[in-house]
Design a protein around this nucleic acid. Structure first.
Lengths: 114, 114
DNA sequence: CAAATTACTTGCAATTCGATAGTAACTATA
DNA sequence: TATAGTTACTATCGAATTGCAAGTAATTTG
């Protein structure tokens, strides 16, 4: 998957998840969500086209995998791959930074270590 | 500065630096850069309008401060505030993630702890 | 069978991005 | 002193991305 701007691991990481939505979706995975409709329910109110395109690129980068539709519920589920789960530390440090440095933020979604 | 999408510290952090460029600039600060022209020189090749606008919002959020132009060199310099320096851990964990998970990345810019 | 739900796609206007060119202020060189 | 160069931007404009709303196909529930 090599068209990153430079060989810098920081800019290359940002090439994957440097936007306003991708890590919000990953956060939701850690919070236990796995269904399209569950991601839509989050307070940030992602729109359907953005969600669909982010899920696609997350899969492309091997951070999540799509499951089949459940025969019982008719719902498709997604889950984090091992690589996706390795983003835990990134989210954790960002959450702590936000809590310390942005007023009005609060710990709400418990992000259990994977 | 309160118009974040939710009270989540992760999404609120992303409201500030959730894009492809902001953390690249912060990385450069940690690498010792402080001049407009130095940021332009980075291998990612940020364009001038993006750099100027990012410096502006970084200042607005209190992560950097603008210095006056030097009378000797005619150059203006920017530097990280304490709050800006507190982003060190975020960069550090992202750099490690990239090194482990994105092939072709390499440790190049030494990021000394602030 | 009709209505609802789920997971999208499509269309479109508005915003943002990125490349380039231009500019104002100053500095160094001839 | 005139000229060229440097610095830190701003302006412009086409391209890409975003966000909202509406539409759709495949189930699934009443």
């Amino acid at each position: 998957m090599g068209n990153h701007r430079s060989c810098c691991p920081i800019s290359s990481s940002l090439d994957i998840f440097g936007d306003k939505w991708t890590l919000v979706i990953i956060r939701d995975f850690f919070a236990g969500k796995s269904l399209y409709s569950e991601f839509l329910d989050s307070p940030e109110k992602i729109s359907t086209n953005i969600l669909a395109s982010r899920l696609k690129t997350l899969e492309k980068h091997g951070l999540i995998i799509e499951g089949k539709k459940s025969i019982k519920t008719g719902k498709k589920s997604y889950k984090l791959t091992k690589r996706g789960k390795s983003l835990y530390e990134v989210l954790d440090v960002m959450a702590n930074w936000g809590l310390k440095n942005i007023k009005g933020t609060e710990k709400r979604i418990s992000v259990p270590a994977p």
